[in-house]
Amino acid sequence: MQTELDRIDRQLVHALQDDARLTSGELAQMAHLSQSPCWRRVKRLEDDGVIRGYHAVLNRRALGFGVLAFVMVGIDHQTEVSSVAFEEAVCAIPEVVMFHGISGPEDFLLVVVARDLDAYSELLQRRLHRLPGVRHVRTHFSLQEFKGQVGGLPVPLG
């Protein structure tokens, strides 16, 4: 369900998306509100699920993850039991940083990080190919990132 956002809500969301470390005082000043009403607005945005959390954006390369792979997975069949088993198994793999059910010839898209190609090959052979119900796996490697998660969603301010 979509939450209606007024101009001030959009300003707050935009500012927090750019810098989640802003204090409620800084947010209030930016939105031309006093601190209490500003805090209540942010709390409502959190409660309504518009703001899902606050996270540090980490540099995967600085942490030793030189490989970013987009992994397309097709599974044999989807029943509720097999789907749940597959989803739980994928979610338990720390190197899978994003996981989506998709339309098209494959059923799922996984975004995977690994130290290097050897580490990815090991993950592919020992974990991904052994996931419940996997029919086939196709990997596309990122060669260069032009726009990643930093910057977030477009929030119209007008």
Rank of each mutant, 00 (worst) to 15 (best):
V73A: 08
Q2D: 14
R138A: 12
V81H: 15
L63W: 06
E26P: 02
D48Y: 02
L143Q: 10
V71L: 02
V13E: 02
S103I: 11
H129Q: 15
E87N: 12
G101D: 06
G64E: 10
Q29L: 12
R40V: 08
T139P: 03
G49I: 03
R115Y: 14
A89T: 10
F141A: 11
A114H: 05
G133F: 07
D9M: 08
V42N: 00
R127K: 15
I93D: 00
A114P: 01
H77V: 13
F65R: 03
G53C: 05
F99H: 09
M30N: 03
R44T: 10
L58A: 06
P94C: 12
M98G: 09
R60M: 10
V84Q: 14
A28Y: 08
C38I: 03
E4A: 11
L12S: 11
P94Y: 07
A92V: 03
L22D: 03
V81D: 14
I102M: 11
C38G: 02
L153I: 11
A20T: 05
Q144I: 04
L123E: 04
A85G: 02
S142A: 15
E46C: 11
V81G: 09
L123K: 02
Q149K: 02
L131T: 06
S36W: 01
L58P: 00
H100G: 01
Q149D: 07
F99K: 01
S36H: 08
R40Q: 14
P94L: 09
G104W: 15
E26L: 01
E87L: 04
G49R: 03
Q11W: 00
L110G: 10
E80A: 12
L68K: 01
V73N: 01
Q149N: 06
V90C: 03
T23Q: 07
V50T: 03
M1H: 05
V67K: 03
H100A: 09
F141I: 05
H129T: 07
D9V: 12
Q17R: 05
R10A: 10
L27W: 01
V111I: 14
E4Q: 14
V150H: 06
V67L: 08
F141C: 05
T3Y: 14
P105L: 10
E80S: 09
E4T: 13
L45W: 07
S121W: 03
R60V: 10
V71M: 00
V57P: 04
Q17E: 09
H136A: 10
C91Y: 06
D118V: 08
V84D: 11
G148D: 12
A31H: 08
Q11F: 01
A69N: 01
A31K: 04
H129L: 15
H129N: 15
L153M: 11
V134H: 05
L33I: 04
V71D: 00
D76E: 15
P132D: 09
A28T: 08
Y54Q: 05
K43H: 14
E4L: 11
E122K: 15
G104Q: 15
A85H: 12
R138T: 13
A114G: 06
R60C: 02
D116L: 06
K147A: 09
S103F: 13
L58E: 09
E87G: 04
I93K: 00
L68M: 06
V13N: 05
G133H: 04
